[in-house]
Design a protein around this nucleic acid. Structure first.
Length: 822
RNA sequence: GCGGAAGUGGCGGAAUUGGCAGACGCGCUAGACUUAGGAUCUAGUUCCUCCGGAGUGCAGGUUCAAGUCCUGUCUUCCGCACCA
């Protein structure tokens, strides 16, 4: 018997599969399509265990579906633009492209060594001009639809990355990539109008039952829809108006002050020339100097200052002090809020601190509130008081009534507000897709004509980061002629956020080599949406929200017919070691290459799928890897042992089965059923593998018995088929050793025989008052009354129930009998 | 503060519909084979005061029966957070 030697067989089969084009997907196929996709990686140079987990999960699904008769699309690619390439270029004096392409080559080699069944014909690399040409094309579709625009705004700037960031890319006030603090800058930047789609992005979450609710909740929070009203206040002394946004117009009669954000354009006007002007300006400077983190943390003190100006509350014509304070955000709502201390906790604290008046306008139905008894705002439901014509109304019912009043009197209106901001996509970096825009003194902003795409990255630039994009250094790049008037013009020098590139790559796979369009409409509609998408939870908002947005816009533009990109989403957990995420700085990294070199890819894959269910974090265990290795060796040995018998290729003679054989066959068919359901319905690969292990144990258990050749053949063959999606190489090797000439990976998935899963005899538990006292073995067909009788007549049960009354006897078929006594 | 997930042996985890808690694997113990074993095979392995009892973070409840359902509570993790 040969020893199991993965180093020899894995390479052999990988080459064979490749040569045979086993995993190339054909478009015109009568079989039902199934599109399984793992999030494509950034080409850092090496795979890490997180990738191994990601691809192993996807590969099990892809192989399983293929064996089940689906036409499976399972592609791979690279999110290849991005800053590390530039940093490497600076550090090592090589071109970003060279660094990126050699990294991709290495990672493709590693992915092939894992034995993943990808269709490499469809490889997508976002940094390749054949791809980013279409990224630019899509940008132009956005622009033509009015969904891409340039504006001057206060934006997030990372000083260490030397570029701006989208809101989604700021985590706790710090850069998502390098974790250094984000500062504010006023810059003119390109945005995509994702806010136009806020409502549909929120609503269509309901169309995604196959997504984890956790991710949907996170997107819901991020979009942050709130219903309320705008109220317009007059400022008679300045002949001005100011609009506030509130979700609680029912408290409007309790307004005792209003607050403007320090950035609010009115502030300057209100304070100019007043006695306190300098003091107020100092305060504003102080707030500006607070970091994003300090200013938005609820731990930091609310600070404000009275401007000296007053506005008029339209509901009751009362004069209301106008303050400026650090806690009001200019970006949200209207940048101005009303203050109702009695019915908002934050306002209560602020009013307490600065001695501002409080007025109660809502009171619980059963008692009357007084200011003396209150030590915080009353925010529950109640009845309106001190509110003019609205007195006596329930406050919830008063909200629409008071908004109606505002609209009738032209001093406000209904408004739905979102927390979501437009997506800032300009980046002042080199290694990205250039924004295909030309500026002409005569014609203004002009798109690069489609026939001139792609706008290629120049190579004569220095990557040292500065305040402007490196592209600006290339005169050849910058200077151009206006496509409209032919006059001198210059190009936009910012590149696009790489999240743009990854917002449509999954569509490109459907038609990866198309040179006349991003993809043909027919093919994209045939393959999409992705049936199963797999990736890390860290993209719950970023990539997954942007991709949903892109899909919806592309549908509106008429490029695709579907409106959600990913039907089912599986968010895998992290791979951790010694309690924390694997990282170079902690020195707890286990290299996939090393593990594959030592044990082979099959062992690595099997361990990682077995150690935890996919959604949960996975604790790396070297001993666990040994366990997976031992298991594959057990499979190898038992199949090798029976090789001559199996080769006789006999069928099981069901009528002639002995009881031991019947039991083995029962385990076999139960396993087929369980593995099929665990993969297809639950994505619980760990329990699927554990039941295959049980099957192998059962196979070993009859090792010393005479077993009919047909059953040996059936068991071994099914075992290999069940294991094939998890451990593709060892199963292929054994499969072909058995004499099969076609790959196991295009063989049919085994079917189970329901009859074979039913045991003739079952052991049932006999309980007295819920406590297990005895076990009996009965025929599976036994009548309930007989079982109850048998159970109550047992010696041990008689002993216990002797001087007690039997109240009732419960029988759960094939499980247990419970005798209730008193 | 709001929202979500999770808490089960020495460890990773199982228990899908309320029905034997601890499948499977790791580790450990013993035995077999062996010149040898860190190979392999077999058996055992929740805890305790072990003919019995206790036990799924904690405290209650519903039920013949609760890891699973209900009420309260604690802890950990994740997301959002001065969002008006």
């Amino acid at each position: 018997m040969d020893k199991y030697c993965p180093q020899e067989i894995e390479k052999k089969w990988q080459n064979k599969w490749d040569a045979d084009g086993l995993y190339s997907t054909v478009d015109d196929d009568s079989k039902e399509k199934y599109y399984v996709l793992e999030m494509f990686p950034y080409p850092s140079g090496n795979l890490h265990m997180g990738h191994v987990r990601n691809y192993s999960i996807g590969d099990v699904i892809a192989r399983f579906k293929r064996m089940q008769g689906f036409n499976v699309l399972h592609p791979m690619g690279f999110d290849a633009f991005g800053m590390p390439a530039e940093n490497a270029a600076i550090k090592r004096n090589i071109k970003p492209a060279d660094w990126t392409y050699s990294n991709m080559d290495n990672m493709i080699r590693q992915q092939k060594e894992m034995g993943i069944a990808y269709d490499w014909n469809r490889l997508v690399q976002t940094c390749h001009p054949d791809y980013y040409r279409w990224t630019q094309y899509l940008f132009e579709q956005f622009y033509k639809k009015g969904l891409a625009y340039k504006k001057k705004a206060t934006v997030n700037w990372c000083d260490s990355c030397n570029t701006v960031l989208a809101n989604e890319q700021v985590i706790d006030g710090c850069c998502w990539r390098c974790d250094s603090p984000v500062i504010k800058k006023d810059l003119s930047q390109w945005f995509l109008k994702i806010t136009d789609y806020a409502d549909v992005l929120l609503k269509d979450l309901d169309k995604l039952p196959g997504w984890p609710s956790r991710v949907k909740t996170m997107q819901e929070n991020w979009i942050g829809r709130s219903e309320g009203a705008e109220i317009i206040f007059d400022i008679p002394a300045f002949n001005e108006k100011v609009t506030v946004y509130t979700t609680r117009p029912d408290t409007a009669f309790g307004i005792s002050y209003m607050v403007l954000a320090v950035e609010h354009p009115l502030v300057d006007k209100l304070i100019k020339g007043t006695a306190n002007e300098q003091k107020i300006r100092d305060f504003i400077d102080h707030v500006h100097n607070q970091s994003e983190l300090d200013r938005t943390s609820d731990k930091s003190e609310k600070e404000g200052i009275f401007t000296g100006a007053y506005a008029i509350n339209p509901f009751n014509d009362e004069k209301v002090q106008i303050w400026v304070a650090n806690y009001v955000l200019f970006e949200y709502g209207t940048g101005a809020v009303m203050g109702v201390p009695t019915h908002d906790s934050r306002d209560w604290m602020f009013a307490d601190k600065y001695g501002i008046d409080k007025k109660i306008v809502i009171t619980p139905a059963d008692k009357t509130l007084t200011l003396d008894e209150m030590n915080d705002a009353y925010t529950d439901e109640g009845i309106l008081i001190n509110s003019g014509e609205f007195n006596g109304m329930n406050n919830r019912k008063a909200i629409p009534a008071m908004i109606d009043w505002l609209e009738k009197n032209n001093c406000g209106k209904r408004r739905i507000n979102y927390r979501l901001r437009d997506w800032l996509i300009s980046r002042q970096r080199y290694w990205g897709a250039p924004i295909p825009v030309i500026y002409c003194d005569k014609c203004g902003t002009v798109l690069v004509p489609e026939k001139d795409l792609p706008v290629k990255l120049p190579e004569d630039v220095n990557f040292e980061p500065g305040s402007v994009s490196p592209l600006a250094q290339s005169e050849e790049f910058v200077n151009c002629t206006c496509p409209k008037c032919g006059g001198p013009a210059h190009r936009e020098t910012d590149t696009m956020d790489t999240f743009i590139c990854s917002s449509w790559y999954y569509m490109r796979y459907a038609d990866a080599k198309n040179t006349t369009a991003p993809f043909s409409k027919e093919l994209v509609n045939k393959w999409l949406p992705v049936d199963q998408y797999i990736g890390g939870i860290e993209h719950a908002i970023l990539h997954l929200l942007y991709s949903r947005f892109f899909t919806k816009v592309l549908k509106d533009v008429g490029l695709v017919d579907f409106d959600e990109p990913f039907k089912n989403l599986l968010t895998q957990g992290m791979v951790i070691k010694d309690g924390s995420k694997m990282s170079k700085s902690l020195g707890n990294v286990v290299s996939p290459e090393e593990i594959i070199g030592k044990y082979g890819a099959d062992t690595a894959r099997l361990f990682i799928l077995f150690a935890a269910p996919p959604e949960r974090d996975l604790e790396w265990s070297d001993q666990g890897v040994d366990g997976a290795w031992r298991f594959l060796n057990r499979v190898w040995r038992i199949v090798e042992q029976y090789l001559p018998t199996i080769k006789e290729n006999k069928k099981t003679d069901v009528a002639a089965l002995t009881s031991a054989e019947k039991e083995l066959r029962r385990v076999l068919h139960t396993t087929i059923k369980k593995v099929t359901e665990d993969i297809a319905e639950r994505s619980n690969f760990n329990t699927a593998i554990s039941s295959i292990m049980e099957l192998v144990n059962a196979f070993y258990a009859v090792n010393d018995k005479e077993i009919q050749a047909g059953l040996i053949n059936e068991t071994a063959t099914s075992l290999l088929l069940l294991l094939a999606p998890f451990a593709p190489h060892i199963t292929e090797e054994l499969w072909q050793e058995l004499g099969h000439t076609n790959s196991i990976h295009i063989a049919d998935w085994p079917q189970y025989d329901e009859k074979a899963t039913v045991a003739d005899e079952v052991e049932i538990v006999v309980q007295v008052n819920g406590k297990v006292r005895e076990k009996i073995t009965i025929s599976a067909q036994a009548a309930p009354e007989d079982v109850k009788k048998q159970a109550t007549e047992l010696d041990r049960i008689q002993e216990i129930t002797a001087d007690k009354n039997i109240v009732k006897v419960i029988y759960v078929p094939k499980k247990l009998v419970n005798i209730v006594i008193k």
